[in-house]
Amino acid sequence: MPLLIICGQACGGKSGLANRLVTHFTKENTPEDSVHLISDESFYSCSGKDRNTVYGSPGLEKQMRGQLKDEVTRVLSANKMVILDAQNYIKGFRYELYCVVKAAKTTQCVLFLNCPLDQSLTHNETSKLYSEETIKALHLRFEAPQSTARWDSPLFETSPENVHELDLQMVEQSLTSGRALPPNLSTQNPPRLAADTLYDLDKMTQKLTSQIMGQMLNAEIGDVLLVSSKLSDDLIISEKLKVNKKLSMPELQRIRRHFLDFYKSHTFKDHSQVPNVFFQFVSNAML
Rank of each mutant, 00 (worst) to 15 (best):
D167I: 13
L168C: 15
T107Q: 00
L60H: 10
F43V: 11
S177L: 14
E239K: 06
T23D: 09
L21Q: 02
D40W: 02
A137G: 03
H139V: 09
K69G: 05
A86R: 08
S229D: 05
M170P: 02
R65I: 06
T205P: 03
G222Q: 06
P191T: 05
S47K: 09
M249Q: 10
P183W: 15
A195V: 13
H139G: 01
H271W: 08
E161H: 12
I237Y: 00
Q188I: 08
L185C: 06
K105N: 13
K102W: 03
D270M: 04
G12V: 01
F279C: 00
L68K: 08
A219R: 01
I83R: 08
V110P: 02
L21K: 00
I236M: 13
E41K: 14
P154K: 11
A219I: 03
E165H: 12
N189L: 13
T126F: 06
Q63N: 14
S15L: 05
I6C: 02
M286R: 07
I5R: 09
I5K: 01
D152H: 07
P182Q: 07
Y95V: 04
K69T: 07
L287N: 09
V75L: 04
Q9N: 11
L252A: 05
G12L: 10
L76E: 01
N79G: 12
D233S: 12
P250Y: 04
N218R: 06
H266S: 11
I212Y: 00
Y263M: 00
A86T: 05
T107L: 03
V54D: 04
P190N: 09
Q146R: 15
I236N: 12
N162M: 14
L113W: 04
Q67T: 13
E32R: 11
I6T: 04
L60P: 08
